[in-house]
């Protein structure tokens, strides 16, 4: 890992903070950089959805069912008032850049609004699942043999239960008004309930890989000299974990969080496609696809399926690129290998 730089340059790198080093290395990974930029743009567009689009995402318009993607406004529509607001300049009223669906709703508007839910679920579930996995993994790695064995055994069992059926049962369970907790949930959460349920379900089913990963890291770090030195200095166990061991695993955890975000978006889309995730009238990329297959044989019907899926694909792809770039940047030994 010797750098051929000399003199002043070397000195400036000597004092460079780890975050800066990572950023410098990350920028060299072109795909990751592009992926990161695209992700930021997607998040911004989704966040600004109501201000970007002149339409309401749930508004139906029988006159323009199944229209093809186009930047022009049909003459017969030009004089009709049909917009909520005159929005961005280029997006004129009556224009449907991605076409319209079976009920005449604007697909681009729905993709933007769907992105709010899908991205929120992805980031929240990815983050929460990584945190939970890290916590449990660190606990297993740093506790005594008994705790470690029981936690590992529990992880094994969780991984032996078929995932998708468990997902189904959990979704049904949390939506069941007879279960006391579910009732309390719907009172506190109102319309956001299906989003919270889906996040919870994804977290419950996906923390295990992170826990295994972190446990392995902690177990190997535990034997290293710097931890021994810290122990010899009489530093408490909790402090050793929090200040010395976990920061060393941070790079692995960050990468894992990025990949889990992509994974969560995929799970959400699959569940919503099956009709179990985000429920209409709320819109997500997954539930936009749930009836899309029926319209494949309609003229212009394919756009109903094409665009939401394309955005899921793009988002997960970018998340994976960023994860890969981060892994290279945080651990140069792995560059190009994985």
């Amino acid at each position: 890992m010797t750098e051929p730089d000399k003199g002043t340059k070397l000195r400036s790198r000597d004092t460079e903070s780890p975050a800066r080093t990572t950023w410098r290395r990350f920028r060299r990974h072109r795909l990751a950089l592009v992926g990161g930029v695209v992700l930021v743009v997607l998040v911004l567009c989704a966040a600004l959805a109501p201000w970007l689009s002149p339409y309401d995402f749930a508004r139906q318009n029988r006159r323009v069912r199944f229209s093809s993607p186009s930047f022009s406004v049909p003459i017969e529509l030009q004089s009709l008032p049909q917009c909520r607001q005159p929005a961005v300049l280029w997006w004129r009223c009556g224009m449907h850049p991605f076409g319209t669906d079976d009920l005449g709703r604007d697909i681009l508007t729905r993709v933007l609004h769907g992105g709010r839910v899908s991205l929120l679920v992805g980031f929240a579930a990815g983050l929460a699942s990584t945190l939970l996995g890290t916590l449990i993994g660190a606990l297993a790695g740093f506790s005594g043999r008994l705790v470690d064995t029981s936690v590992s055994r529990f992880v094994d069992i969780m991984l032996s239960i078929p995932q998708l059926p468990l997902l189904l049962i959990l979704v049904g369970l949390l939506a069941n008004p007879e279960v006391p907790m579910a009732n309390w949930l719907s009172q506190t959460l109102g319309g956001a309930k299906s989003i919270v349920i889906i996040i919870a379900v994804i977290v419950i089913l996906s923390w295990m890989s992170t826990a295994r990963l972190v446990r392995g890291q902690v177990l190997s770090l535990k034997e290293r000299e710097f931890v021994e030195a810290a122990r010899a200095l009489g530093i408490s166990r909790l402090r050793i974990v929090l200040r010395h061991v976990l920061p060393s695993t941070l790079s692995v955890i960050i990468v894992q969080a990025t990949l889990m975000t992509g994974e969560a978006i995929l799970i959400e889309s699959g569940l919503s496609f099956l009709g179990l995730g985000i429920q209409p009238p709320a819109v997500s990329w997954g539930n936009m696809l749930s009836r899309a297959q029926e319209f494949l044989y309609y003229p212009n019907g394919v756009y109903i399926a094409l665009f939401p899926g394309l955005f899921i694909f793009l988002t997960v792809l970018c998340a994976n690129f960023v994860g890969d770039g981060l892994r290279d940047a945080l651990d140069p030994r792995l560059r190009g290998r994985l």
Binding site: G262, S269, G270, L289, A292, F313
Partner: peptide, 15 residues
């Protein structure tokens, strides 16, 4: 490989 791990399988099927 990146495309393969990122694509939603059901959407790929529909396409």
């Amino acid at each position: 490989n990146f495309l393969g791990v990122s694509v939603p399988i059901f959407w790929l099927g529909i396409m």
